[in-house]
């Protein structure tokens, strides 16, 4: 992806950063997979939220819209868009109301039809400046699924619109905690498919091993700096110092007390739940005999 300098492009307008949630990407890829035979790309509506300051667009949801392209002509399912949007609005809660923020397409090309579709979405969004998200599903560029976001401004010559100029916007994936959990879960299940033979380690062990690995990396770095083989970096040093400072210093007796207290709590709960289970088992047996009377 060519990295254009933001200063070159956005000196006249405010820079808008686009955040895309993984759900949207999954939806686009799924939709692309289900495209009608013969069509090169699919389009759809992006839903999300605009930040008050206008520097941030968060794309949280998307839905597919059928369309057909023939040469320079394009037909968009306008009614479809309207109906589905109305349906989706029925169940979104008040405080987290999503609005139409733009549209996506699964082809890497910005063609003439793109600006036609963009014009349509200008009328759909509130501020008339939709975001266009392009996801490249060909896997040719960098051998990865690449995505880019665009804004467009009309080129005016003596008051006449000649065309649209698409600006690229900075784009980033963003996920909240549950989404991140889902994604890491998906990555894990994908790896499981490849190597089913490997036995699943307890999760706690995995976490600890990773923690040790990180500590090891930090140690080698610090050692290298002390030996003089690596030039010191104040920022890194500060980060390490910060991390070390978060380890609570405790007196051994206070530590012991804490340890025993939490252990006792946990054991107590285990005891209670076991007791309940036993009681339930007895109650069940009694209940079963009721039929036999």
């Amino acid at each position: 992806m060519p990295q254009q300098s933001p200063a070159l492009l956005f000196d006249t307008t405010t820079t808008t950063t686009v955040f895309v949630h993984p759900l949207v990407l999954l939806h686009i890829l799924d939709h692309h997979r289900r495209r009608p035979a013969g069509s090169a790309r699919v389009i759809g509506t992006l839903l999300g939220r605009f930040d008050d300051s206008g520097v941030l667009v968060e794309v949280t949801n998307a839905f597919a819209v059928p369309h057909a392209e023939r040469g320079d002509e394009v037909a968009i399912g306008k009614d479809f868009n309207k109906t589905l949007w109305a349906l989706l609005q029925q169940n979104s809660s008040k405080q987290q109301r999503e609005v139409i923020v733009g549209w996506y397409s699964s082809s890497p090309l910005l063609s003439d039809t793109s600006s036609l579709i963009h014009d349509f979405y200008s009328t759909e969004t509130e501020d008339g400046n939709p975001v266009h998200l392009v996801v490249d599903c060909r896997l040719t560029e960098e051998n990865a699924v690449t995505m880019r976001a665009f804004h467009s401004t009309p080129i005016l010559v003596q008051g006449e619109t000649l065309g649209n100029l698409f600006h690229e916007l900075p784009l980033s994936l963003r996920s909240n905690e549950p989404e991140a959990i889902c994604v890491s879960e998906m990555i894990k299940s994908m790896n499981d498919n490849n190597e089913t033979t490997e036995r699943e380690k307890p999760p706690l062990q995995i976490s600890m091993e990773q923690l040790y690995e990180l500590l090891e990396t930090a140690c080698t770095y610090v050692d290298a700096v002390v030996d003089g083989t690596t030039p010191p970096d104040t920022e890194k040093g500060r980060h390490i110092a910060d991390a070390l400072a978060t380890v609570p210093r405790m007196r051994p007796d206070a530590m012991d007390k804490l340890f025993h207290e939490s252990l006792q709590d946990l054991l107590m709960v285990t005891y209670l739940s076991n007791l309940t289970q036993t009681q339930i088992a007895i109650a069940e047996k009694l209940n079963a005999t009721l039929d036999l009377q």
């Binding site: 955040f19 993984p22 980033s172 994936l173 963003r174 996920s175 909240n176 905690e177 989404e179 991140a180 959990i181 994604v183 890491s184 990555i187 999760p203 706690l204 995995i206 976490s207 600890m208 990773q210 923690l211 939490s262 709590d265 946990l266 709960v269």
Partner: peptide
């Protein structure tokens, strides 16, 4: 804010959270 890349790594460390009492 959280980015996806960093937070996927983070989820494995979330397991080390010690506060159990509210749940219990």
């Amino acid at each position: 804010t959280n980015r996806l890349g960093s937070s996927t790594v983070k989820t494995t460390f979330d397991r080390l959270d010690l506060s159990t009492n509210p749940y219990l």
